[in-house]
Design a protein around this nucleic acid. Sequence first.
DNA 1: AAGTGGTCTAGACCACTCC
DNA 2: GAGTGGTCTAGACCACTTG
Lengths: 236, 236
Amino acid sequence: MSEPLHFVVKTRLVEVVERLGEGAALPPERVLAKDFGVSRWTMRQAIRELIADGRLRARQGQGTFVATPKLVQPLALVSYTEALRAQGHTPGREVVAFEQIAADAELAEQLNIAAGDPVHLLERVLFADGQPIGLETTYLTVARFPTLKDELDPTGSLYRCLTDQLGVRFGAGEELVETVIATPREAELLKATQSLPMLLLHRNSRDTSGEPIEVVRSLYRGDRVGFRATLHPQTP
Amino acid sequence: MSEPLHFVVKTRLVEVVERLGEGAALPPERVLAKDFGVSRWTMRQAIRELIADGRLRARQGQGTFVATPKLVQPLALVSYTEALRAQGHTPGREVVAFEQIAADAELAEQLNIAAGDPVHLLERVLFADGQPIGLETTYLTVARFPTLKDELDPTGSLYRCLTDQLGVRFGAGEELVETVIATPREAELLKATQSLPMLLLHRNSRDTSGEPIEVVRSLYRGDRVGFRATLHPQTP
DNA sequence: AAGTGGTCTAGACCACTCC
DNA sequence: GAGTGGTCTAGACCACTTG
């Protein structure tokens, strides 16, 4: 058994998926398992990998369907809303939380404040064409943005509010990208099955004078989103 | 059952992992399952997620161990060797293939050549401190680099060879990042268990005049590597 | 040979959606 | 209520590493 059975099944299932069109429904797992002559566990293993690869999409109580291609988002300091619209998709946002909390040690260091200092916490689910694709958690220092709670429409663009209303000028920033598994809470907010690979982006934005503006933790569904970075040549 | 059992187990297992030090061995799966009062399948589900998160590492025939933190690699046009060394790690490379193939339609378009034209294929496993962390597949047009096969030491830096020996000047490039599941072949080369989430980087480098230099498909172990991008402010 | 993780089976029940 | 995907069990065998 050099090649696991579930991979053989996956390979054969890919052919089925390619014959069906986008959005087409797959036969039920139990039927597929019988057709392929494997157990349901093995069948699900193959399906699960195709879901992680973004080829299939499962909906409990309904069935499994051929997915549409992944979105590609820019890895840059631009508004989420504008980036999506530029690609012809309909952006959406849903506020999960907008409150003040006390910064823990790690967050305090990243924002260059003292542990325990108050920070704004803004947590929003990002939608594209009605589908949840990401969970964005933003932290901003209250001392620096005392009027944010009044000025910001939490369903609107934070980036726009900061630049247009509060006069913030974004400088260079850093973004970290890695894969993680979502917690059940995060998975539920993203309407994803648990243990689906996610892309975690961690951003620490600074203004033109190098002062921290915000700390952002964005969790994107790995089955639906990819990112594009623009590389700049070295000048040594 | 709003919270799946395997997640409850995962949460409790994290505490165990944190008490043990880096590199420490976990009890066998069967023992853990018994201790937690769950089936081995549920136990493995929890372990599998901690492996994907980079907290644990499993070695067949040996056991499961507490992992070291993820590496963070720059998402930039610099030599892999130099980047790793700058972080105090020992880089390594192993050549899997170095040959000529005919470009398929997609590759031909990306390299701005005709389908069927010969291209160099260089496939290498990248190591950090003796551990395989990535599989890099590079395609270069033979017509543009006819002497590459003679000039390049395939165990050395391709970037160095291109810039120093062949006079190539890298311009701006684009890099795509997404999560995928490795094929069994790729998983084997990376000594990873299958169905582990990977980070796929797809790069299309161009020189200063905009001509394509190379197409690179890099597959990194998502449990061991993260990436850092530097963001540049918009100038509208 | 013994013990480890990796794969697979058969079967069960739960949660959700639609009729 | 019927049918779907989601979770979980108990048990088996395989592949690999070490003594």
